[in-house]
Computed example of a mutant assay.
Amino acid sequence: MVISEPIPPEPSVRNAPDRPDGRAYVVRGDLDLAVDVALATGRPLLLRGDPGSGKSSFAAHVAWQNRWAYHEHVVTSRTQAPDLLWSFDHVLRLADAQAQRLRPIESYVEPGVLWKAFAPRSARAHTLRARDDGACLTVVRRSGAAEATDVRTRSVVLIDEIDKADPELPNGLLVPLGSRRFTLSQTGRDIDPEDDAKALVVITTNEQRELPEAFLRRCLVVKLEHPVPRELVDVARAHVDAYDGPFTDDDRFLAMELADVVQSLRQDADRRAHRKPSTAEFLDAFHACRQLGIRVADSDERWQTLRRMALLKQDNVT
């Protein structure tokens, strides 16, 4: 999923449980200070923590809270550093060549998330200049040069799960993240940062692969610890208040029961060296119990099934 210039829409339901729009986030620990330091130093903010701990949704929350533009790139094993700066549509260019309708080489270049953040006017102007012939490059055609300057100059960039990539990816980002300058290899054009463009770059890792030391030195690093039970209740409250209406006493009691269960399961998982239920899984269980009327009680068979499916995720575990 890639979200660009506009503020994420406000859905009437929770339409993206793993990547919410940022409204229902409970900021804990030093995260607010970390944002201030990252903006003051121009350094990326690297968030560590277990899957489901809220690393990715924090970036959307900062964008929503401040009404900044939001750009997101989810890293895969095939992602390379230039993919975050720009992409080149080789397939479209080949098709155009076969159809004998080649366009200027820059027409096949599309700005990436870091280009949009570091030089937003340049990225918008480039997009508006590109031709839209109904193929892969989708461009909004508008009249008037002023459209290229009608952009948000403050933004949040999420580079999600960087540990999935080869170590060459973080190494390849050292210069662009440090200088906020880069060169388009296809055209030789230099992209320089715009003076009024301010970007918070949030990078997440599940620590499945160790990151290069040179990359870590250039980041601010914060580890998200799992919330204690009262903080889990606050998380449930934030989600209900944001999407479903007022948080009732029944909701609070349910959240407290589930928070205690999650805490107990995590302590047991520590002893057995098993995986631990995350904040996201706590929310899944909370929403399911709340909507389906499932009681957190050993006598409720539906609770036992839900506990296995949503929290333990192990077959035949009681």
Rank of each mutant, 00 (worst) to 15 (best):
S107P: 04
R218D: 07
R209P: 02
G49A: 12
A199N: 01
D21Q: 04
E106D: 14
V91A: 14
I105F: 11
P170I: 08
G245H: 03
D241G: 00
I159L: 15
A297N: 15
E161W: 05
S278E: 07
N66D: 04
R152P: 03
V113C: 09
P176M: 08
K116D: 01
L114W: 05
S87P: 03
V27M: 07
V221G: 04
E257D: 15
W86L: 09
V221M: 08
A269M: 06
L184Y: 08
S122M: 10
V201W: 00
D251V: 00
A273H: 13
A119I: 01
A165V: 06
G188Y: 06
L232F: 04
A297H: 14
R275A: 12
A199M: 00
H90K: 10
T205H: 00
D89L: 07
H226G: 01
H239C: 09
V2C: 10
A146Y: 09
R78H: 12
P104F: 13
S4D: 11
F286Q: 02
I203P: 00
D250V: 10
V235D: 03
Q314R: 15
T305P: 03
V26G: 08
S179Y: 11
L258Y: 01
V201H: 00
P277N: 11
F253C: 05
T149Y: 14
Y70F: 15
E110A: 13
A69E: 01
R230W: 13
R295W: 11
E281C: 08
P44R: 04
V296C: 13
L102F: 11
L211M: 08
L94I: 11
G49H: 06
P8T: 01
A259I: 01
D251H: 08
E147R: 04
Q65V: 05
A297P: 06
D163R: 02
P277Q: 10
K313G: 13
L169Y: 03
R308H: 07
D190R: 11
D89W: 01
G52P: 02
